[in-house]
Simulated assay, not measured.
Amino acid sequence: MIVSEIFRSLQGEGKSQGRPCTFIRLAGCNLRCAWCDTSYAWEGGEKMSVIEVLDRVWLLNGRQICITGGEPLLQREEVLEILKKFRLHGYTVEIETNGTLDFRDLQPYASICMDVKCPSSGERSDLSLLPFITPRDCVKFVVADDSDLLYARAVMTQCQIRGEIFISPVEGSDYRAIADYIVRENLPVRLQVQLHKILGVK
Rank of each mutant, 00 (worst) to 15 (best):
L88P: 12
E71C: 04
R104F: 11
V50W: 02
V53W: 02
W42K: 00
D55C: 02
E13P: 01
L10I: 15
L199T: 08
T100Y: 03
L26I: 12
L74Q: 06
V116Q: 01
G44V: 12
R8G: 05
K47Y: 14
V193F: 06
K47C: 09
F86Q: 07
K202H: 03
P20S: 09
K140G: 11
I161A: 10
Q158N: 08
L54W: 09
E52S: 10
E43V: 15
L127I: 11
K140N: 08
R136I: 13
D174G: 07
I2N: 10
C21N: 03
V143Y: 07
G28K: 04
K202T: 02
F141N: 00
W35Q: 06
D102A: 13
Q192H: 01
R8N: 11
G62M: 08
W58M: 15
K15N: 14
P72M: 00
S4K: 14
C138L: 05
Y109D: 04
R162W: 08
D148C: 07
I161K: 11
G90E: 10
F166N: 09
S128C: 09
Y40C: 04
G200K: 15
G70V: 13
R19T: 13
Y109P: 02
E185T: 06
R76G: 05
L187V: 03
H196L: 10
Y175K: 06
Q192A: 09
L150A: 12
R8D: 11
L195Y: 01
S111R: 13
F86N: 10
L73C: 04
K15A: 12
F23I: 13
V3N: 02
G163F: 00
R136S: 14
M156V: 03
L195Q: 02
E185A: 10
E13H: 01
K140H: 09
V143K: 01
D180L: 15
S128Y: 02
G200Q: 11
L60K: 06
N61R: 14
K117Y: 04
G12I: 10
E78M: 10
G200N: 12
G172E: 14
T38K: 06
N186A: 14
